[in-house]
């Protein structure tokens, strides 16, 4: 998949980061970290239903849900990360805004190098970037597993 073929909601995010000079990119990431939605109560009460992304240097948990009833269901993503981990929260927030609501087939086609396309690799160390790649990898794996479980029903 080329950059041209990325879903609009992701392409716009990439353009947002592209449009600001390097020092301001961190500020933009900080704004994303602040806008990460709270977990819905059903997860807040059941943290064991979330999957930990152990590749992140800070605690980050995620959950993936497929919408009901269609051939190619929409994907809903939920993240939990502490306020003391703003970079991790920022990555989660980018993925939330970029992926949430997309059809499962589209999520599975998102290129694995997506995290490198935000121009953050110079500002954020490789290990920190790997955390974002791991989130994307785990989201895709959950989508696949849940689709497989559904077609087995």
């Amino acid at each position: 998949m080329t950059t041209d073929a990325l879903p609009n909601q992701i392409q716009e995010l990439i353009e947002d980061f592209d449009a600001v000079p390097e020092p301001d990119k961190l500020q933009l990431l900080l704004e994303f970290s602040r806008s990460l939605p709270e977990l819905p109560a059903r997860y807040g009460e059941h943290p064991e239903d979330l999957e930990q992304v152990v590749e992140c240097q800070s605690p980050l948990f995620l959950a993936v849900e497929l919408e009901e009833g269609t051939q190619d269901p929409g994907v809903n993503i939920f993240f939990s990360a502490p306020a003391e981990a703003p970079t991790t929260r920022g990555f989660a927030s980018i993925l939330y805004e970029g992926l949430d609501g997309l059809p499962a087939s589209t999520v599975l086609e998102i290129p694995d190098d997506l995290p490198e396309r935000f121009g953050l690799t110079k500002l954020v160390s490789p290990l920190r970037m790997r955390g974002m790649s791991a989130m994307l990898g785990r989201i895709k794996r959950q989508v696949k597993e849940q689709q497989a479980a559904r077609s087995a029903d």
Binding site: L30, S58, P86, T87
Partner: peptide, 9 residues
């Protein structure tokens, strides 16, 4: 910090 954004918060 470990977290590149923590100071800004």
């Amino acid at each position: 910090d470990e977290d590149v954004l923590l100071y800004e918060t």
